[in-house]
């Protein structure tokens, strides 16, 4: 794959994306986690690509504002890659929206695990070790070294990653498209994306049922019975109930309010 020349405008967009990618936890919420921060990071790219196409722009923002959760460093790589994908989507229609979403989703799970171990569980401990040694002697240099080793290093890697994600994404998608394999990529990305959502559903969505039915002397813990049918059946049931509701045209606001009401009513009746 040949290396692509980055134009002046692209460089400007990437720089702005790099700066915005620091806002990883802006309005972090339980429904979409880092989606708003991701939207803020993608905004310069989307504005520059879809300048004259309000309908496509709206769709690109909707894609950007989906559930997103990964470590702060690969966050910028995925955003850079997404910039390349959005550009290809607009310029020659080589990649469709579903594939963009699937690739994004496929990447967030593994990168989160990898970079959490690398930075949070490894580099942070090294930086803390050095800093504690210095600070316990009353030397404030320790604090600055900690910021340098753990903080500035991440920022530098983020800068490299957003650019790398963009150039890599552009040449990768070009290569796939030119060899006529986009259909194969769509399918493969769909498999990986769905598997990762399945994984995240199991590890994140939790229906904390705490309901015991007493029949005479014996009592039945409903959650245990259901889990013995299939572990976490309630979480996956809830998810597909809502997928069905969305297919029927329910709005996300209605779903969120239903969950809120369900939680409160359930707790009032004593099933949570």
């Amino acid at each position: 794959m040949e290396k692509k020349q980055v134009t002046q405008e692209e460089r400007k967009v990437l720089k702005s994306m790099f700066l915005r990618s620091h806002l990883v936890f802006t309005t972090f919420n339980m429904v979409k986690m880092e989606a708003n921060a991701y939207t803020l990071t993608m905004a310069p790219a989307i504005e520059s690509i879809y300048k004259d196409d309000p309908e496509e722009k709206r769709e690109a923002y909707l894609r950007a504002n989906q559930f997103f959760n990964t470590h702060a460093v690969p966050f910028s790589f995925i955003a850079g890659l997404n910039y390349a994908m959005e550009k290809q989507h607009h310029d020659n229609g080589s990649i469709d929206g579903t594939t963009i979403n699937a690739i994004k989703t496929a990447l967030m799970g593994p990168t989160a695990g990898m970079f959490d171990s690398l930075f949070f569980n490894c580099l942070r401990i090294i930086a803390s070790g050095i800093a504690i040694g210095l600070c316990s002697q009353g030397n404030v240099l320790g604090t600055f070294l900690f910021i340098l080793i753990y903080g500035v290093s991440q920022s530098v890697v983020k800068y490299l990653f957003v650019n790398w994600g963009y150039t890599f994404g552009t040449s990768f998608i070009d290569a796939v498209y030119n060899s006529g394999l986009m259909q194969a990529l769509t399918k493969a990305a769909g498999v990986m994306g769905l598997m990762m959502i399945g994984f995240m559903t199991a590890s994140t969505v939790n229906v904390p049922l705490n309901w015991t039915i007493s029949i005479g002397e014996t009592s039945v813990v409903v959650q245990d019975v259901l889990n013995s049918i299939f572990p976490g059946i309630l979480g996956v049931g809830l998810l597909f109930l809502m997928v069905g509701a969305i297919k029927k045209g329910w709005r996300p606001t209605q779903l969120v309010l239903c969950i809120l009401a369900f939680g409160l009513v359930g707790a009032f009746l004593g099933i949570f």
Partner: peptide, 19 residues
């Protein structure tokens, strides 16, 4: 508390229905 541990299902549901 129960509602917030179920909320993420909405985000996943939107994503699943898209891909």
């Amino acid at each position: 508390g129960a509602a917030s541990s179920m909320m993420t299902a909405v985000g996943f549901a939107i994503l699943v229905s898209m891909i």
